[in-house]
Write a protein that binds this DNA or RNA. Sequence first.
DNA 1: TAGATTGTTAATCGATTAACAATC
DNA 2: TAGATTGTTAATCGATTAACAATC
Lengths: 216, 216
Amino acid sequence: MPKETKKNDVSYSVIRRLPRYYRFIGELLKQGTVRISSGKLAEKMSLTASQIRQDLNCFGGFGQQGYGYNLTELQNEIGNILGVHEVKKAVLIGVGNLGRAIAAHMDFAEYGCKLAGLFDSDKDKIGETAAELKILDISELENFCRRESPQIAILCIPKSSAQQIADRLVKLGVKAFWNFSHYDIKISHKDVVVENVHLGDSLLMLSYGLNHSSEE
Amino acid sequence: MPKETKKNDVSYSVIRRLPRYYRFIGELLKQGTVRISSGKLAEKMSLTASQIRQDLNCFGGFGQQGYGYNLTELQNEIGNILGVHEVKKAVLIGVGNLGRAIAAHMDFAEYGCKLAGLFDSDKDKIGETAAELKILDISELENFCRRESPQIAILCIPKSSAQQIADRLVKLGVKAFWNFSHYDIKISHKDVVVENVHLGDSLLMLSYGLNHSSEE
DNA sequence: TAGATTGTTAATCGATTAACAATC
DNA sequence: TAGATTGTTAATCGATTAACAATC
């Protein structure tokens, strides 16, 4: 068993906070900070020092009494946990407005991902270039995946075709779906993970907040 | 006090689930379903019946014993809570890849929002059209906001200028920020709400899942 | 009426916070 | 050594689930 995985039963509540830790640590390092105490980090992130120590200790003792946490080490450890140091190939399906924006806008390398192929079914788009990749015909998907073995698929396609394309990709060995299709896809294979992104949900939360902010 | 706001202290855990309820109810209605029991809805949404009844009862008794929930009524009630029935004007700042995609891709009307203005500081973009709106010079922001009074600002600008633009918009009366800038903006005014969207965090969660899925 | 299903209270479970001994 | 700050256990708090009486 790997050394850094102290407990294997880390709760989802903790996991969800890891990317945010990773971000703040990155910022601090960029500013030249070398070390930080749980108390100071808590203040910066609007958390409690207790929670930070509790969270980090799920994975191992990354700190040092009387000193705090070394940020370079901490970034590296959390990076390992999140898997940013292994390069993973990704395909993006559906090069509409959103697909194009994600292809161009996301710094995939920062997250250990490499965008390897873009696919669309629109004949007009096929052959065009986006994010330095030629857009391929969706009928090429099987050939491409057998050759390149992408682990991640980014779905920027409409609701209607999301489940069908996802099933097709599972058969081709895709193990993770970043799904922007506005439809919660269901995958039965237990070793396939899904992140259903719903930007609309986020906008509705904002709308709720607007509605209820004045009533304190 | 408004009738539908039974308790004013609804927890964030409950609020976060509302947009998802709203989505599923919408889908069911589109399929012609008229009513549903908490048990059946729980099954569809992978929740417990208890939780659904508990959640909905935070806002009022929307169901009927022996019958279940009328979907039209439920959609309407949750829509009210989320504020989708009031039209709110929004400005979008930063018409790069992502800004353009959000302007074009999101069905704002569905969420009670109306995109009223697009702004950029890039002279080459000013005057261009996106989502049927002419892109305006950021220096026009003050004039525009005084005339149109948008409540929502969508920030699709780099980290470096996010806080500054946000502060500027708060002075102009903006009450809600949908922030895609990769930087957690801080607003001190207590009646201003912020949704910091971090697509990178979502991708990191997926990466974590990929890393840990096989070890059950 | 009998059956179904809610609204609501009580029990359980998990997550957060507080406290403090260990130790750098 | 003295001071600081962690790692970790115990206490608290909140959220989820179970149970059931109310009622359509």
